[in-house]
């Protein structure tokens, strides 16, 4: 088994960009500590590369040719596309892992028709996780995208199958691979409603996610999600894919709805890797 770590975390741009505006600094710092613990767990796993299943925000893909799934097989990446002063993350180069990523892609393609890309610009959706999980930008990254922005979106059962395919791919290579899914749960980002969080909805979803309750996870419809969890809720696809890859139950290490200035219920969790 070469998948050595699987987890999920939030990626909202305010997590770094609006850090200095936060009033509840105690809760903010608890969140940062949980992210640092996740970094340590990934390092301790011995992972040689990190797959980031992200929900990008028009940094690479547009409605002229929108893939439901894409895997980065490039040698290097750059980010953030956003104004560094706004995101408070400097522009940097990030190493890729072309040989490993290509082998993983070939294996995924046996069951899921994923796109692939040798060019990829990282937006906050990947840069926020890397800022905390690989702060020296020295771990090879394999970016993966699930379209959560430009409807029509891939059905949740397909996101599950994509995660399962990633797991089979990881298990087919000798390298130790870590994987995180990054997205929001309920949130209304980049709208006047930014900061609105449906905590009961979040907790119900997270409970199903931690318990690997596939039936409950795949029962959500986009219409229900939009009404109760906002358009940001479409990003549950990344969490669902991570759960499908891990197979084992999860441990919710941090969740709070008390940092609305970050515009999302801030989440950190890990899964056990089960056969």
């Amino acid at each position: 088994m070469s998948l050595v770590y699987a987890g999920v975390l939030s990626h909202a741009p305010g997590i770094t960009g609006r850090a200095d505006l936060v009033k509840n600094t105690e809760k903010r710092d608890e969140f940062y500590a949980a992210l640092d613990k996740q970094r340590q767990e990934i390092e301790d796993s011995g992972a040689e590369a990190l797959i980031v299943i992200a929900a990008e925000h028009f940094a690479n893909f547009f409605m002229n040719n929108m893939p439901a799934y894409c895997i980065g097989i490039g040698n290097r990446y750059e980010g953030p596309i956003e104004d560094p002063a706004w995101l408070k993350i400097d522009k940097t180069d990030v190493p890729g892992s072309p040989d490993l990523a290509t082998r993983l892609t070939k294996e995924v393609m046996k069951t899921v028709d994923t796109a692939y890309a040798e060019e990829w610009k990282f937006d906050h959706g990947i840069m926020i996780p890397l800022n905390f999980l690989t702060p020296r930008y020295d771990m090879p990254i394999i970016p993966v995208n699930i379209n959560c922005q430009g409807p029509p979106l891939t059905p949740l059962n397909r996101a599950w199958e994509f995660g399962a395919a990633l797991r089979r791919a990881c298990d087919s290579v000798p390298e130790k691979v870590a994987l995180v899914g990054t997205g929001g749960i309920s949130h209304w980002p980049a709208t006047p409603d930014s900061g609105k969080i449906n905590e009961p909805w979040d907790r119900e979803f997270l409970d199903s996610l931690m318990n690997q309750d596939k039936e409950a996870l795949l029962r959500y419809t986009d219409e229900e999600t939009y009404n109760e969890a906002g358009q940001g809720g479409f990003e549950i696809r990344t969490y669902i894919a991570a759960a499908a890859a891990a197979k084992g139950k999860g441990e919710l290490q941090f969740y709070t709805g008390e940092l609305p200035i970050f515009a999302v219920g801030c989440t950190v969790a890990k899964f056990s890797i089960s056969g």
């Binding site: 609006r18 505006l21 936060v22 009033k23 209304w188 709208t191 006047p192 409603d193 930014s194 900061g195 609105k196 969080i197 906002g230 609305p260 200035i261």
Partner: peptide
């Protein structure tokens, strides 16, 4: 916009 225009953050 679905929230009637209110601010959801204390900071805001």
């Amino acid at each position: 916009m679905t929230g009637g225009g209110e601010s959801y953050t204390a900071e805001g």
